[in-house]
Design a protein around this nucleic acid. Structure first.
Lengths: 105, 105
DNA sequence: ATTTAGTACCTTGCAATGTAAGATAGTGTA
DNA sequence: TACACTATCTTACATTGCAAGGTACTAAAT
């Protein structure tokens, strides 16, 4: 899997999942890994960044299976950022497809 | 336009165009810019990289409208790299779409 | 009791790539 | 003479994902 392709897109994936319900970090890795390989060393800095930018808030919850889980919750600002990023992604993919399948003069 | 999205994808776009015919750098910027914003400072280092890796060869041709043009031509190795990268891109986009539109448990 | 495996969090240094902002130089026009 | 367009290139910088580590809790196996 080309590492470079993921740049910026993992943020979109995380925002998309958080738009559906709250997740904790380890769980996000698990879900994303079903389709795109991702390491923990990626997700935690990313989540910290999202919190710094005010896109998410966090809360702790105890677990019976291990240490406490830190859940992430999308803010209004986060939802707006998600919508914008999704549109940008669609536009981008369309642009790339036009180039890949496009006619040349 | 999200800069990060472009990481690695511009290489794919350039390889795709070169798979159709030879281009010179300035011309590649022009074509790609129809769909994806790209600066010259990006394309020339990228092309140098492609040459270093043996994906392209170059030749000069004079121009009536300015300085000589350096044309880039895909090698066999470059064609193979292009095919692989294209498949990776398709797989990646499908993975992202599955996450974006996917059901969660 | 101790080790191992799974869960769950985190940090640091590194690699890769796109950008801005410049430089250089040829051609043609005002 | 100056400007705009064509065409090449370079350097310093910002961003982000990864590998490789660390910490700590729970439960099962030894």
């Amino acid at each position: 899997m080309n590492i470079q392709f993921k740049k910026g897109v993992l943020e979109l994936c995380v925002l998309s999942l958080l738009d559906k319900r709250d997740f904790y970090g380890y769980e996000l890795v698990d879900h994303i890994c079903k389709y795109i390989n991702i390491s923990e060393g990626t997700i935690y800095p990313l989540l910290r960044r999202l919190k710094t930018e005010g896109y998410v808030t966090t809360y702790l919850e105890e677990s019976q299976e291990g240490p406490p889980r830190k859940y992430y919750k999308l803010t209004e600002k986060g939802k707006e950022a998600y919508k914008e990023l999704e549109v940008e992604w669609e536009t981008f993919v369309n642009g790339v497809n036009n180039i890949l399948r496009g006619e040349i003069n």
